[in-house]
Design a protein around this nucleic acid. Structure first.
Length: 485
RNA sequence: GGCGCGUUGGUGUAAUUGGUUAACACGCCGCCCUCUCAAGGCGGAGAGUACGGGUUCGAUCCCCGUACGCGCUACCA
């Protein structure tokens, strides 16, 4: 265990865990596991307006579902507020920060004015110029104040592990507020202090924080602390190349779970957004085969841990491709443990009031798993396994059904009823013989059989379907069909 | 507006530190298999690497500019 490598995922509980956040968490987790370091979780719940504890729970549940948990007790940022405040006051004492007496409204007006005049707004450091006695006087009067960080002159640069050398001119950074007038610390200080206190070695987060980084580095320097290594991950966009949004897209991890995606499949898919697995097997397993594995991109979590490296993480934002997720999910379903699938389907069915035995569901799974994308598809496309059809596909009717064939179909139904060994081979044999004797194509009967028993024109091999359904319900459904048509 | 970051087929990515007919996967199209749908097998279309300039015998790769996209620019996180 390399205790020098410590990373963290720090969501703020202002919403569900969305796929972008999950991807950030995944890269943190992979890096930590690859380096045999520690993966930590911190909930950034300092904004009481928007933070809800149900949401923290929900985020944690999603993390657990994805198979990632904190290697140390979870840190709740709100609990550290006093520490943030004290540290900020130290900065004040060191003259690295100063009292600011402007009110939020005043600043707002200044900003608006600048905007109207189309000039660049920058805080004018008016409060920094207030003489010390006057500051004292204001304080004695009980005037409300915020604390601003005094941004030093110079440039701030750092070596981002995904972006490389990144440079900012300090003159472009405003003297940002570190402590609000109500005494609460602002995000920038809170992260820096918590990351330091948690001894975070690598800050791995979304690209959207790249511009925040110099501020934070300045803070580290002001405190005299070692600056961690930064890695800024590209964003995830939707099919229209827009940032994923709650309104237009499915974004929460929980929702994917409900829609029938498997945790490992989503994990695998998200990893592929911005990370390319190496081509040769040699790179994957030291001393392993040189040839490439069959499915280059279907990579288990364990293997991902082995092969993960920032060398293969790229900088540009990626589009979330639902079709590829579906494909990966189908791959995972095909190779999944059937028992696990059965359990999930059993639960889903229970929610809709259907209670089937696990062995029955298992036979459905075996038959269908080659042809579904999600776990919900078992229930949606295979609804006839669980409920009798209440209508029949219209196109199917016009294509396969006509009054002339009715007596023939009736005869066939009675013959089926007399069949003793109810298994797919026997049923097929019976059907083909019957078709031969009556001079019709087997296919004609097959289509009709499918339509009458499933209500639709699409299903796995009909004989296997009939076997699972049992003779009783098959005969029942055929008679139903005959009665209605 | 300022600053920062990015840009390889429709999508995700690859391309031994400049030399490839620009590769793979998903998707799409076609064929085979076949009782339908998938799966599987085979094949195909689709980018000349955002655009424009350089440097070089030679640029996806190095440099500059432009465009476009995204982010930051809050007493949000």
């Amino acid at each position: 265990m390399d205790d020098n490598i410590r990373v963290r995922f720090a969501p703020s509980p202002t919403g569900f865990l969305h796929v972008g956040g999950a991807r950030t968490a995944i890269f943190n987790w992979l890096y930590a596991k690859n380096k045999k370091g520690k993966f930590l979780l911190r909930i950034e719940d300092t904004d009481p307006e928007r933070s809800k504890s149900e949401l923290s729970e929900q985020i944690l549940r999603s993390m657990e579902w994805l198979g990632m948990s904190s290697d140390e007790p979870i840190v709740y940022q709100a609990l550290n507020i006093e520490r943030h405040r004290q540290a900020s006051m130290e900065l004040l004492a060191d003259k690295k920060a100063y009292y600011a007496f402007e009110t939020a409204e005043e600043l707002d007006q200044q900003r608006k004015l600048a905007q109207r005049n189309k000039t660049q707004y920058k805080y004018n450091r008016a409060s920094l110029k207030i003489p010390e006695e006057k500051v004292k006087q204001y304080l004695d009067e009980g005037r409300p104040f915020a604390i601003r960080f005094k941004v030093p002159d110079g440039i701030t640069e750092f070596e981002d592990i995904v972006h490389g050398k990144t440079t900012f001119n300090n003159s472009e950074i405003d003297d940002f507020i570190i402590l609000r007038s109500d005494g609460s610390p602002v995000y920038q200080v809170a992260v820096v202090i918590d990351d330091h206190d948690m001894r975070i070695s690598h800050v791995i987060r979304g690209d959207d924080h790249l511009s925040n980084t110099p501020k934070q580095i300045l803070l580290y320097n002001a405190f005299g602390w070692k600056v961690p290594v930064f890695a800024h991950l590209p964003m995830i966009l939707d099919e229209e190349k827009k940032k994923l949004s709650k309104r237009r897209n499915t974004v929460s991890v929980e929702e994917y779970k409900d829609k029938g995606y498997m945790a490992d499949a989503l994990f695998n898919f998200l990893t592929l957004l911005g990370f390319a697995p190496p081509l040769s097997f040699k790179e994957r397993v030291p001393g392993g085969e040189v040839s490439a594995p069959e499915k280059l991109e279907v990579v288990s979590k364990n293997e991902l841990v082995n092969i993960f490296t920032f060398d293969r993480v790229n900088k540009s934002s990626a589009v979330f491709d639902m079709k590829k997720l579906n494909w990966i999910n189908s791959e995972y379903i095909k190779s999944a443990d059937e028992g696990e699938l059965v359990k999930i389907i059993h639960e889903k069915l229970n929610k809709t009031g259907i209670n089937e035995s696990e062995s029955y569901i298992k036979s459905v799974v075996t038959l269908m798993k080659e042809r579904v994308y999600t776990i919900n598809d078992f229930v949606e496309f295979g609804s006839y396994f669980f409920t009798d059809p209440d209508s029949y596909d219209e196109k199917g009717i016009t294509k396969y059904w006509n009054p002339e064939i009715k007596p023939l179909f009736e005869n066939f139904a009675t013959e089926l009823e007399e069949l003793d060994d109810w298994n797919s081979e026997k049923i097929e044999e019976k059907l083909r013989n019957f078709a031969d004797l009556n001079g019709i194509k087997a296919a004609q009967l097959i289509h009709l059989l499918r339509l009458s028993v499933t209500g639709i024109t699409v299903s796995p091999g009909i004989f296997e379907v009939l076997e699972i359904l049992t003779k009783k319900t098959v005969i029942n459904r055929i008679n139903n069909f005959l009665g209605k048509n």
